[in-house]
Design a protein around this nucleic acid. Structure first.
Lengths: 190, 190
DNA sequence: CAGGAACGCTAGCGGTGCTAGAGTGCAGTC
DNA sequence: GACTGCACTCTAGCACCGCTAGCGTTCCTG
């Protein structure tokens, strides 16, 4: 029994190792640098080992994305709860979201851009994911008397997402980012 | 002289053929199906021919994207100019933008998601691209007394872009699309 | 009609994600 | 304590990718 559990533990540790290596490699050199060969070398095992843990490269990316959601949720929560008033809270949450996307573009992509087979807008979505969206919702809630909080949050989130992805891919001038962000906030905190 | 021009004309035709084939293949089967081998087969030439016209696959995608901008500009213009009043015009333009993104997802991606080395938010941007953005701007113009039309248009555009990309990648429930779009419009036509 | 350049082809390079099957070492059994 | 069998990891290789060197043909030019 003890041997069995030790093996399972070691397996779990190696799985963490894979996810961490993939994440670090993606963040430092982009997802195009994360190849199965490179990843295998990084964890000091051969390629097929990856496939005993994950169905394929996409599944590894999905696992990294889930980690990302947990991080994002934590940062949004910190921003929201440390703000002095609700209006300020929404602004801070928006800024925190933007900072996350700017500082970890590869991680952000795995969460929101890449096609990854994770359940999203359903109850089966990973808890971390629901938590992150929940933080946005709670930041929006105090500022609207609208009865459709969910839709409003989704639309606000889309605005943030659009701003960041378009800017990062060179479609929007970087200099005006703050102005656009402020404008978005003003349109959603009435 | 005549032979020279005939050759140039034939070359130009073949270049159009490549772009068209790439576009059709992408729209019908997605960009991942557009490989240089497949594309070569489609145009009935060998692979290296592609490289005598374009620097690489990215350049072909960029050419397709430019075509897409022309199409989008035309559709936005039609929506804008046939509307009865400015408020309606913005709604129609938003709907036309959404329809474009929904019906030609691969084309849309080459224009707004893929990293493609085209100049965007500068005067050197391809005319079709500036025209498309211009249509958005003209739709927004009559509805705001704001002095910063450019920033406002960019932010509205980002909202649209965010809604569509998040929905298409499964991050937003499709059923609520109309409601989100209406909400976005209401927030930008005050 | 001969010479030469322009052009498109075949073949191949180094990479990708992924997998079959061989080989090794450890666990449990007598 | 030796043996057997299984779990596990590795090597090697598949089919594909974007891209290119260099050969062979074709067609224009003088």
């Amino acid at each position: 029994m003890s041997i069995q559990t030790r093996r399972e533990r070691e397996r779990a540790e190696r799985e963490r190792l894979i996810i961490t290596a993939a994440r670090e490699l993606a963040e430092s050199e982009g997802w195009e640098a994360v190849t199965t060969r490179r990843l295998a070398e990084e964890i000091e095992y051969s390629q097929p080992v990856l496939y005993s843990h994950f169905k394929g490269k996409d599944a590894i990316m999905a696992a990294v994305a889930v980690e990302g959601f947990a991080d994002l949720a934590a940062e949004l929560r910190a921003a929201r709860t440390s703000a002095s008033d609700p209006r300020r809270a929404l602004a801070d949450v928006g800024a925190a979201y933007a900072a996350f996307a700017e500082q970890r573009p590869a991680l952000y992509d795995s969460m929101f851009t890449h096609i990854v087979d994770l359940p999203f807008a359903t109850p089966e979505a990973p808890p971390a994911l629901q938590e992150a969206f929940g933080e946005l919702r709670e930041a929006v809630r105090p500022l609207v008397r609208d009865d459709n909080l969910e839709t409003l949050t989704e639309t606000f989130w889309s605005g943030l997402h659009g701003l960041l992805t378009l800017m990062r891919n060179g479609r929007l001038r970087r200099e005006d980012h703050e102005r656009r962000l402020a404008l978005l906030l003003s349109r959603f905190s009435s």
